[in-house]
Design a protein around this nucleic acid. Structure first.
Lengths: 340, 340
DNA sequence: TTGTACGCGTTATCAG
DNA sequence: CTGATAACGCGTACAA
């Protein structure tokens, strides 16, 4: 026997669809006799309301969407994103919602937005004027963006990227380093914006300028794939340059850990030969040796705040439109004084 | 202006709902004139078909569900699960599906199953006869389980847990260790089954028996929370016992890494003072120092195979009903010979 | 080539 | 007070 529908129950019980629905959802509105008969038939036949039809009717879905700028395998290689998801998950639990992870299809996130059967969306790095913003608006979907650019009339949850980056650079400069390599990450221009990257770059430059080192020829900017192997390869090239940097400022911990690995591979030691500072403070930062000095951003909190804002939006509340979470420098073991 | 529906477009264009739908989904079936008019009006008004109504009609949702036995924040703390999700994600990408992560609600996964608007489910650790299995069946949802028990007429993707555990124990015994602590993990009996755990325990005992060490009083079984801190606390207690173990066999890498941390905290060194072997081969295993010797299971492959099976089921194909993936011992640096 | 009617569950509205 | 009708959303088999 195929799927049992509400019509089957109505027909067999002799009552209408309405009564069957009330038996489940508003038992007080029908007689005891009707309810008992309906419920017993439904249970006997194993009737379960179709969730999709139910969602259509109720205009709610019990799930929020997380719009990824990258395919799932790549996204889940990113420990900071895992932290964000943990924070979102806390709110999902409280609200009894599930989380639908929506990857780009053939490099386009637009189809995902078009077809998302969700109560609202959490997005990453959206900026005013982007095509996906327009489409989400057209669909009248509540949404929040994490690490996006402010000013588009949608809520943004982020951190003080510029200040954090400046702090990181100051830590390095205060340790006496002048031969500094800044490693930023490459981004897919079809998928992401470079707002975060630009802010952090600006922060590095702020600290450099404070120290009178703007435009210093001893400070290099390079780019890396945002992966351990990207960090290793980038550091391999840097160590072959002359002079090699005495300090590396990486824009993410994953890259910084790759850098540490390559330092060891090259027979060198951090921080004795090269100091390294990262960004994010992912859990892995305390596993490596030396433990990674880094700019800590609250990943779980970012996800939680974004999800809370989104839930508020879904309930029709007014919400804060710009949340900036603090960063802090976590000094561990990978940064040391410059040795002459 | 509120949401635009297909009826609005039909009314304004003067054509029927059918024609509007064809204009989008089967353009060849209506005249050029009709299509152009409909498309231009739709575009002008910003009409986007409601995904839920669309899904209801098509009886497909473009999303598969991952039924979690734990709430999202806990689940995403588990690196092995992240690997599984990466594998699932590869298949999602190929099939242009999204992934809905369904956590338990108030410690029950049944509501999640009842309300899941998905084409199929990937589940973790399901066993024949479980209530959730019955419910999934009632809903006629295709499903696959990872690390579950075989024999319930549903596809299971897993590894040779027993053989892998035996290999791990042999590695330790071959290194000469006799004072061995086996650390298994606690599970929430409301949410998970202990099939994997029991298999691994059996494997440890197999190797012990081979070596004539069944029932050896020098071999201890303890339980740990499945977290770094759980591993640390458990190891702290073990180191205070007398005699302390010369080797630790942990049922997961996360626990094993916690054990390594505690060894360092206690001023000892692995493998000089204590050897440690883990299980899983998570990416973090190569980050720690000493690098972790472990039983490697193919996490990404597990997810990929499960998702492939599920897609086959969704397409109505016949699929293998029991996939056992191989494990292999990865010897790194955390196991060494017993020192007398 | 285009329109009618149906499937799915909920609920505002109406009838008894 | 109890229960039925009809409408909402979209796609498509079938009829015209």
């Amino acid at each position: 026997m195929g799927r049992i529908t509400i019509n089957d129950i109505a027909r067999i019980s002799g009552y209408s669809k309405t009564s069957v629905s009330f038996a489940f959802n508003d038992p007080g509105r029908i007689s005891d006799k009707a309810r008992e008969k309906i419920l017993s038939i439904a249970s006997e036949l194993g009737y379960i309301p179709d969730p999709v039809a139910r969602n259509l009717s109720l205009r709610r879905h019990g799930t929020i969407g997380l719009l990824l700028p990258q395919v799932i395998p790549l996204a889940f290689l990113n420990p900071h994103l895992s932290q964000i998801i943990q924070g979102i998950g806390e709110v999902c639990e409280r609200a009894a919602h599930s989380l639908t992870v929506i990857p780009p299809v053939r490099e386009s996130i637009l189809d995902g937005v078009r077809n998302a059967a969700v109560d609202g969306l959490i997005t990453l790095g959206l900026e005013p004027g982007m095509e996906s913003v327009e489409l989400i608006r057209k669909r009248h979907l509540p949404f929040v963006t994490i690490d996006g650019r402010d000013g588009g009339g949608f809520p943004v949850v982020g951190i003080d990227d510029r200040g954090g980056a400046a702090d990181g650079m100051r830590t390095i400069l205060n340790a006496g380093h002048r031969d500094v390599a800044i490693i930023s990450f490459v981004e897919d221009p079809r998928l992401a914006t470079s707002h975060v990257k630009n802010q952090r770059l600006a922060g590095y430059n702020d600290a450099l300028a404070e120290a009178g080192l703007a435009e210093s020829p001893r400070v290099r900017f390079v780019e890396s794939e945002p992966s351990l192997s990207g960090g290793r390869e980038t550091m391999e090239a840097l160590l072959e340059s002359s002079p090699p940097p005495s300090a590396v400022v990486a824009m993410s911990d994953v890259i910084a850990i790759g850098v540490l690995q390559q330092i060891e591979t090259a027979g060198l030691s951090a921080p004795r030969d090269v100091s390294v500072i990262g960004f994010d403070n992912i859990p892995e930062a305390v596993l490596v040796s030396p433990r990674l000095t880094t700019i800590a951003q609250p990943g779980v909190e970012k996800g939680r705040r974004a999800a809370e804002l989104l839930m508020g939006l879904i309930e029709g509340e007014e919400v804060d439109h710009h949340v900036v979470l603090p960063v802090r420098t976590v000094e561990r073991e990978s940064v040391g004084p410059r040795v002459a």
